[in-house]
Nucleic acid binder design. Structure first.
Length: 583
RNA sequence: GGUCCUGUGGUGCAGUUUGGAGUGCACGCCGCCCUGUCAAGGCGGAGGUCGCGGGUUCAAAUCCCGUCAGGACCGCCA
């Protein structure tokens, strides 16, 4: 078949006037004026062009047609300035219906939000919408920019397997039964982590891949079972070189998407982020930083404030914008988030030009304590002071969530605020037995300044920093990485602390430890979540909007009906039997 | 594992608080009219398991319990 098309709908301009063109696409909208005049907006991925049909026809929404006619200027006074093709139209049209269509299951314009279930069930229709087309093409642009940047910086693209061994640590694995080895299973990779480290041992020097990663954990607006990462690893470098190379790729991607190149990416330590923003992925597009009040309540008479940590935030104008019901709801949320309660005070101008706190708890607070709250939070007349008194961890966590709840701008406002978060703790907590739980993976290099703390054990371990780092964009965790342990002695020590003996280490990670016995270069790496990056660049708060065929929050696909049962013969071949549902 | 929101012709909503006939709005769809519209316009029409199941009641879209689906979040995501 020869090409049916001479031009794309959205690309015709006044320069094409007098040309005879053939355009192909979907009938977007019809404006009928009887048998002798109809305006057909024909749509393809580039946009729409008005075609004037002056003979009898039977065109309906979403019919696929080829229209051949001549480009001509629109009559005076009928130019549509809100359309790129609005100065012209295709006239003397010959219409060829290539495919008919039932009426679409939902409107294809962007003026209404259609139910997610219906959009996904008819995703092929949904994808025709201009917004979705933009998302897909933006994603392709980002992928391309990233590939070019990594290639330019000497990274080698290497594919790693999708059928891998299950490892007990980390997220829940998706698992694939082995037909040839009944009772044994492959796992789908949570990330190419171990393979990329093996590449370093293998002398690759600089590896990258746009890798599909799979984790069987609950879905969120920014999380799907399957997601794409720019995955990279480098030999003979430390954190700074990783930041430079990944930063270059990310900036290239942003520039390709927006036309503007971001400036240098600032760095903040994990501890700083926790204390100032109550999060390891601070959204620095707005202020409302967490303020320390603990010492101001050192001599408190109140039980509420007799706690290890007191911190607060100030909501400007909150005394007037939030009613009692809204504040009660906030209190409930704080409790659900793990706090014992929320101490709140309306700030009102007093008689002497100063401001004073109003709230149920003021009668248990000294003048000095109240003054400290006003002073440190920077409260002004009409503000609302919100204070959490709890453990330091809980106070930071809950205030961090409260801050986002009350102050976070819409996703497409405030520009792109990248941030490297460094010096993540090596251990997250101690388990019942007093053994530390790793915060990252067990191959993360401890911070050289804190190695001495490893000998102390106990709670001192929680102060051990690591050479692990994250990239954050507007409050989203865009990616993470670390400098890896490449020396057997340090690795044994960390395994020892984690309660992993030599035998267990051998069983779980033997192949990697084996590899490290044969000359492992110092290496470090990173992985950037591309779905999230593209979503933020598209101004979307849900990554489904930039994924062609995503799953719903419960992990289903309304289009294909996955997941679905398989028949008994299939199960038998795999050596599997399905248990009855638990009661 | 948990919390919250939503579910009403094809689509988006109102109606649910305070029970009283499937009532309404916009878009779409079907038919007719219409030669310059562009979210075309006019007239007429069709289209409903009020997600599903149970309960309370003389009576349930509305109240109660359960369940399913979609969404947001906490936990989880080394």
């Amino acid at each position: 078949m020869t090409n049916l098309r001479t031009d794309y709908c959205g690309e015709l301009r006044t320069a094409d006037i007098d040309r005879t063109v053939s355009v192909c696409g979907w009938v977007d909208r019809r404006r009928e004026h009887g048998e002798h005049l109809a305006f057909i907006d024909l749509r393809d991925h580039t946009g729409v062009i008005q075609c004037v049909v002056d003979e009898k026809h039977d065109l309906r929404s979403e019919y696929v047609v080829r229209i051949t006619g001549s480009v001509r200027p629109r009559l005076e006074g009928t130019v549509n300035t809100s359309l790129a093709t609005g100065e012209i139209e295709v006239g003397d049209c010959e219409v060829e219906v290539l495919s008919v269509s039932e009426p679409p299951p939902f409107p294809l314009h962007d003026r209404v939000d259609v139910d997610e279930n219906i959009r996904l069930r008819y995703r092929y229709v949904d994808l025709r919408r201009a917004k979705m087309q933009r998302g897909l093409r933006l994603r392709a642009k980002v992928n391309r920019a990233v590939r070019l940047a990594m290639d330019r910086q000497g990274f080698v693209e290497i594919e790693t397997p999708m059928l891998v061994a299950s490892t007990p640590e980390g997220a829940r694995d998706f698992v694939v039964p082995s037909r040839l080895n009944p009772g044994s299973f492959y796992a789908l990779p949570q990330s190419p982590q171990l393979f990329k480290q093996l590449c370093m041992v293998g002398g690759v020097d600089r590896y990258y891949q746009i890798a599909r990663c799979l984790r069987d954990e609950d879905l969120r607006a920014d999380r799907q079972f399957e997601f794409m990462q720019l995955d990279a690893e480098m030999s003979f470098v430390g954190q700074d070189e990783v930041f430079a190379c990944i930063g270059e790729a990310v900036k290239d991607a942003v520039e390709a998407a927006t036309g503007e190149r971001p400036g240098p990416i600032a760095t903040m330590t994990w501890l700083d982020a926790q204390e100032r923003y109550g999060s390891d992925k601070p959204d620095v597009r707005f202020g409302m930083e967490l303020t320390e009040l603990t010492d101001a309540f050192a001599h408190t008479e109140s039980k509420v404030f007799t706690v290890p940590c007191i911190k607060g935030i100030n909501l400007e104008g909150g005394a007037d914008s939030l009613g009692r019901n809204a504040i009660d709801e906030l209190t409930d949320k704080c409790k659900r988030w793990g706090a014992k309660g929320l101490a709140w005070f309306r700030v009102r101008a007093g008689g002497n030009g100063a401001v004073a706190l109003e709230g149920a708890l003021t009668k248990f607070m000294s003048d000095a304590e109240q003054a400290a709250v006003v002073d440190r939070l920077g409260c002004a007349d009409g503000d609302l002071a919100l204070i959490i008194a709890d453990t330091r961890r809980t106070a930071n966590h809950v205030l961090g969530l409260l801050r986002l709840e009350l102050g976070r701008p819409p996703v497409n406002e405030g520009g792109l605020n990248f941030l490297w978060i460094t010096e993540f703790p090596l251990f997250e907590a101690l388990d019942e037995a007093g053994s530390p739980i790793p915060a990252h993976h067990p191959f993360t290099m401890p911070h050289p300044d804190d190695v001495h703390l490893l000998d102390e054990g106990g709670n001192a371990l929680l102060d051990v920093r690591s050479l692990a780092y994250d990239l954050v964009l507007n409050g989203w965790e865009l990616g993470s990485g670390s400098v890896r342990i490449h020396r057997g002695d340090i690795q044994s020590r960390v395994f020892g602390l984690l309660g992993i003996g030599p035998e267990e280490a051998e069983a779980k990670f033997g192949f990697l430890l084996d590899a490290f016995r044969y000359g492992a270069p110092p290496h470090a790496g990173f992985a950037v979540g591309l779905d999230r990056l593209v979503a933020l660049l598209a101004g979307e708060e849900n990554i489904r909007e930039v994924i062609a065929f995503p799953k719903t929050q419960s992990g289903g696909d309304p289009l294909t009906n996955a997941p679905s049962p398989i028949d008994d013969r299939h199960l038998e071949e795999l050596g599997l039997r399905v248990l009855p549902p638990a009661t």
